[in-house]
Design a protein around this nucleic acid. Structure first.
Length: 508
RNA sequence: GGGUCGCUAGCUCAGCGGUAGAGCACUCGGCUUUUAACCGAUUGGUCCUGAGUUCGAAUCUCAGGCGACCCA
């Protein structure tokens, strides 16, 4: 409503006429509200304390009753009540007979103000700043969300996250925890001698994962580029270059749909350790995630959406074959042809899409359809078929499989790791097979990155590699049901509003 | 991609074929212990958009937009 905005602009002009504009240059708080709340619990109801305090924050609620007013002021640390007594304020500011009226009429809910005064705990037990002076720091021209219902509209929470943050302590807590999770992870890795190195986001050959990339263009070089879908291939080049422990924690872009578990840009950490294999990476995964959980949640036993999750290592390890057999009764090691496996699956009502063109790919289908969602407690799923894992090393003892694991928690893939494929001849064949699939219509299949193959030919040490989805991990640690709750500004379709989009578009 | 549900005042919602409503917020008046303050008065609408059915549509139908959830 623009009427409210007009009124508040007028109040801003009134403030300017009084010599203080609606937008201050600075203010020096003496305390955060949380420190005041913490340090003065001994102040009894109705008592006052002659401590000079200055606090700044946003006015959340106003209750004006004649010659006395109560405001709630919130800074980043939390709220504190302002006790605004006309007589007290007037005595402190004898030159301005209108000071109380100005404070109560020119300050609206949503404004940022600073106040000076002393402490008083009211008769009802609320620690308050007894106000003796005030200044407008920033005039708000927009209403706050409903003080009782808060921000009920999920869409507004995502589109106008600043409003969500102002009124929802839980949202603030989620992003604090996310920051703590990320910093803990970096600190832990740095402490283990891992070096964080940034690799290109703009790439001419997307690789390192099965996913469709975003396409863009470099003008000066007239060069088509894609945004990275993984950091894998560049981090491996660094291992070839002699860095034995490297990682990158950063943004990945995949041109896919959005859901409660997917956002087109998300954050991953990829970690590479020379002379290690995937069993080493399992231990690393357990220790790293347990440490992050300990720091963020204060323990390794947590509750997610009403389910207890035990993250204290060690975690269950099971092969994909055994899990599928457990869930379906099918022993995929006995199938010698796709037709045989597909027939057995269809007899159980499982789908067998055409793109799953081998026994191995059908095994993965069966796993996704019947096992994945049931892996609630942390579980390492081991030994994937080679067809689905073009960058993982062939298994040391099981033909047709690779040394790979994925970590599942609450039914979601949370980490993915290999004994890395370092044989350049094998790697070339695998990537060529991928490219053939791509030519055959699999838009997620990878291409051949010649420069990467060249690096492997120079010689890469045996290496264990690991990727962890930060957003999904943070969802777990913050008990968030949707990935959008842990991304400050998730991708949404732009609001249509007035501008109609032109016709003659999208043959769909 | 498919299905279900939602979209009405700034916010939260009711109204479901016959004059567009409530609470809160805003504005004005009153009030020195409130904390969803209270009491009184006023103000505030593209009922998501478009087309159709109808004497009459927020309400019924169709198409579209945006969102949520479920499924793939």
């Amino acid at each position: 409503m623009s009427e409210l905005r007009e009124t508040r602009l007028e109040k801003g002009k009134a403030l300017a006429a009084l010599g203080q504009g609606p937008y201050a240059l600075r203010f020096q708080p003496s305390h955060s509200t949380a420190v005041l709340q913490r340090d003065h619990t001994d102040l009894a109801n109705g008592e006052e304390r002659e401590l000079a305090v200055a606090v700044a924050g946003r006015v959340m609620t106003r209750r004006v009753m004649g010659k006395l007013a109560f405001f709630t002021l919130a800074d980043e640390s939390g709220p504190i009540q302002l006790y605004i007594e006309k007589a007290t304020l007037q005595a402190a500011q004898p030159d301005n007979p209108e000071v109380f009226a100005q404070l109560t009429s020119l300050v609206d809910a949503g404004d940022l103000i600073g106040v000076q005064g002393s402490l008083k705990r009211t008769d009802r037990g609320e620690l308050s700043v007894k106000v003796k002076g005030w200044s407008m720091l920033s005039k708000s021209l927009q209403p706050l969300p409903d003080k009782w219902h808060g921000l009920a509209d999920v869409e507004t929470r995502y589109r106008q996250r600043y409003l969500d943050l102002i009124v929802s302590p839980q949202t603030r807590e989620t992003f604090r925890r996310r920051a703590l999770a990320v910093s803990t992870m970096r600190r832990w890795l740095d402490g283990k001698g891992f070096l964080e190195i940034e690799t290109p986001v703009l790439q001419s050959v997307p690789g390192g994962a099965d996913a469709r990339p975003f396409e863009t263009h470099h003008n000066a070089l007239d060069l088509p580029l894609t945004l990275r879908i993984a950091t894998e291939l560049h981090l491996k080049r660094l291992v070839v270059g002699g860095f034995e422990r490297v990682y990158e924690l950063g943004r990945i872009f995949r041109n896919e749909g959005v859901s409660t578990r997917h956002n087109p840009e998300f954050t991953s950490v990829e970690i590479y350790q020379a002379y290690a294999d995937y069993t080493d990476m399992m231990e690393l995964t357990e220790r790293l995630i347990a440490e992050v959980c300990q720091q963020v949640c204060g323990g390794t036993r947590i509750s997610y959406q009403g389910t207890e999750i035990e993250l204290t290592p060690p975690w269950r390890r099971a092969t994909m074959h055994s899990l599928v057999q457990e869930a379906t009764g099918l022993d995929f090691t006995t199938f010698t042809s796709r037709e045989q496996a597909a027939g057995a699956m269809e007899a159980l009502g499982l789908e067998t899409p055409a793109l799953a063109d081998s026994v191995g790919r059908l095994l993965v289908e069966a796993f996704e359809q019947r096992v994945e969602a049931s892996l609630i407690q942390p579980t390492f799923v081991l030994d994937y078929p080679v067809e689905n894992s073009p960058l993982a090393r062939a298994h040391r003892s099981k033909p047709g499989l690779v040394e790979r694991f994925e970590l599942f928690i609450v039914g979601r893939e949370t980490a993915n790791a290999f004994s890395e494929l370092i044989d350049p001849v094998d790697q070339r064949q695998r990537l060529q097979a991928q490219q053939q699939r791509r030519a055959a219509g699999d838009l997620e299949a990878q291409g051949v990155d010649e420069d990467f193959l060249q690096a492997l030919e120079v010689g890469m040490p045996p290496t264990g590699g690991l990727g962890i989805g930060i957003d999904r991990l943070v969802m777990l640690l913050t008990d968030s049901a949707s990935i959008r709750d842990v991304i400050a500004f998730p991708l949404l379709r732009p609001e249509a509003k007035t501008s109609q989009r032109p016709e003659a578009e999208s043959p769909s």
